[in-house]
Design a protein around this nucleic acid. Structure first.
Length: 572
RNA sequence: CGGGGCGUAGCGCAGUCCGGUAGCGCACCGCGUUCGGGACGCGGGGGUCGGAGGUUCAAAUCCUCUCGCCCCGACCA
């Protein structure tokens, strides 16, 4: 492609609403432009990158035996009502009505529609297993879209769905997808980690996320420093220290202390001159189980630790947990928010293991402006103890003797063992070899295509611009003509351009009427793997300059050796 | 949805407090010089100041409403 003709608008300054490197660079290098919050145009060069990601994904999906389909992006509400998610999915589901007033939504994911597609056609175990995937535009009306393609509302996703007759078969497919995903992210030149994850809205029995490690990642993951256990902090289990028999003898008795208007952990710890770990916070939670069964619990955590709501939900076997309203808290504790405590409350008390490790602590007094000190767990209140907190640096690994380290990651892929959640609710059944009707066992496997591109930039850039991994690079070789008025330069440039094209290497020829400095800066911004500079200065000796984007040094190479040199640099 | 902030030329911003000819840098167009790391000179084009109402002789500026965008939080494949 000739740069004088391509639609590639680069920017010297980044628009003020871009925060992270990938977003800024995608705008500056002319890959994307914003249309609305979380909605982008993909410009030619941006599209090329997306296509390259898709190529890697298709190659590995094919290799893993999956078949490509394409489902619609506008979906009828009835399917969503059938699975129960029409009411459950919340505002993230963008709902619309057609001219007849019928309900539709823009597809945020396609479990319902794919299950619907398969249930009418598959009758027998002989037709299973199946793995169908698509690469398609999704829409999720995110509360807060941000960071460009990293968290858009409209985005391109590869989503695959598998159907199986047996659990073993489904598990094998899960593993096969796990392997395929690893090859995909390797194929995209990314440093990543597969971690155990929460299944969230999609549901299912277990799941893994594929995280590209980057400081700007939105997710936190812990990984064990000694074994290979790694998990999203939302998921990570924490091993409890050995039960030491804490002496509960000879401890001072409870004492009421006045803490006027000191409500938060920060305020109380500062006021009393105690560390946060010596305080215990009491959260009043409302929970819902199936069939409108509701209840309230008090949840205790050490002041320096945070609740993991997913763990609480599991312990309570609840579908939904929400922090109680101020009014409810007052009703239950007889005190305004900020003074709740476990001593003498009427509702059941669930506590994180971390609380039991304290010999005594400070808690809310269930009375205005009062806290209690010298409160001894077990002696002064009863609670059921569980692992309820969010894992963090230094927590103990559940699989070995190690401890966790904390890293940030960008979730680029997520695989789920769904089980029969959708096949049961939607009646996707088959006859097994004994003629017995059973629900299909399902899995689903997603990859954020645009997010991979963004993650690749997060992981591979410097102060001058992008440094594309070879596989994703929109062009592979950048041929820069320093002076387009020099006929010899143009001749050699064109010759090399044709030679690379013949090798299938997709060169970009900078034949613009610009000064050299402008071209060099644009080349660094755009970040193609190899740059060849052609100008009268080196051409006088029959040489051109060859430089990899990652390296600082350029080398002079004879014109006739240029193609070979580039191929060897790229290890092709 | 709660808290904070911002909408002025394609991009980055000043002007708003204190009403009185709409500005600066980059980008763009023309001419000339320059030409291997974001050149310089001269000349030029481009704005319903997010929108609607109001106050006023006069509104980018003051008042009311509204729309959009960004950040933090809660939430989320």
């Amino acid at each position: 492609m000739r740069q004088s003709r391509i639609f590639l608008p680069t920017l010297k300054e980044s628009p003020s609403d871009a925060e992270v490197a990938s977003h800024k660079l995608m705008l500056r290098a002319g890959l994307i432009r914003k249309v609305a919050a979380g909605i982008y145009n993909l410009l030619p060069v941006g599209l090329r990158v997306i296509r390259n990601v898709e190529t890697v994904v298709r190659r590995e999906m094919k290799r893993a035996g999956a078949e490509e389909v394409l489902m619609p992006s506008v979906l009828p509400a009835e399917l969503w009502k059938e699975s129960g998610r029409w009411d459950f999915y919340g505002k993230e589901l963008l709902r619309l009505k057609d001219r007849h007033g019928r309900d539709f939504c823009l597809g945020p994911t396609h479990e319902e529609i794919v299950t619907d597609m398969v249930r009418y056609e598959v009758r027998s175990y002989k037709q299973l297993p199946l793995n169908l995937y698509q690469i398609q535009t999704k829409f999720r009306d995110e509360i807060r879209p941000r960071f460009g393609l990293m968290r858009g509302r409209e985005f391109i996703m590869k989503d695959a769905y598998s159907f199986h007759a047996t659990d073993e078969c489904a598990n094998a497919e899960y593993q096969s997808m796990h392997d395929a995903y690893s090859r995909i992210f390797e194929g995209c030149g990314l440093e990543f980690r597969a971690v155990e994850a929460e299944a969230g809205n999609i549901g299912g029995s277990f799941s893994h996320e594929f995280m590209v490690l980057a400081d700007t990642g939105e997710d936190a993951v812990v990984s064990c420093t000694t074994c290979n256990y790694a998990a999203n902090v939302e998921r990570a289990e924490i091993r409890q220290p050995k039960d030491e028999v804490l002496s509960k003898e000879n401890l001072p008795t409870i004492e009421k202390i006045s803490t006027p208007n000191k409500k938060t952990i920060e305020e109380v710890s500062e006021f009393l001159g105690l560390s946060k770990a010596e305080l215990v916070k009491t959260l009043i939670y409302e929970f819902k189980k199936d069939k409108d069964e509701k209840g309230l619990v008090a949840v205790l955590l050490r002041g320096d630790q945070d609740l993991n709501e997913a763990k609480l939900m599991r312990v309570l076997e609840a579908n939904e947990v929400t922090l109680a309203t101020d009014a409810l808290i007052t009703e239950v504790t007889n005190a305004p928010t900020g003074f709740a405590g476990p001593v003498g409350v009427s509702i059941s008390v669930y506590a994180d293991f971390g609380v039991r490790e304290l010999s005594s602590c400070v808690v809310g007094g269930n009375e205005v402006d009062i806290h209690l000190k010298n409160v001894v767990p077990e002696r002064d209140f009863k609670a059921k103890y569980f692992d309820l907190r969010i894992a963090t640096e230094g927590d103990l690994c559940p699989k070995c003797d190690g401890v966790f380290e904390l890293r940030r990651g960008i979730e680029v892929g997520h695989i789920f063992k769904l089980g029969t959640k959708y096949s049961e609710s939607m009646g996707a059944k088959f006859l097994d070899e004994n003629g017995k009707e059973k629900p299909m066992i399902m899995g689903c496997y997603g990859i954020g295509i645009g997010r991979i591109a963004a993650a690749a930039i997060e992981q591979n850039h410097d102060e001058n611009g992008i440094i594309w991994p070879f596989q994703l690079a929109p062009f592979k070789v950048h041929i820069v003509l320093v002076n387009i008025k020099d006929e010899e330069s143009v001749r050699v440039g064109t010759e090399l351009y044709e030679a690379f094209t013949e090798k299938g290497l997709e060169p970009l020829l900078d034949d613009r009427k610009e000064r050299a400095g402008v071209k060099f800066n644009d080349a660094d911004l755009l970040g193609l793997p190899v740059r060849i500079v052609i100008g009268p200065k080196t051409l006088a000796e029959g040489s051109v300059e060859v430089k990899e984007r990652i390296s600082k040094e350029a080398s002079l190479v004879k014109v006739k050796d240029a193609v070979g040199e580039v191929l060897s640099l790229l290890k092709l």
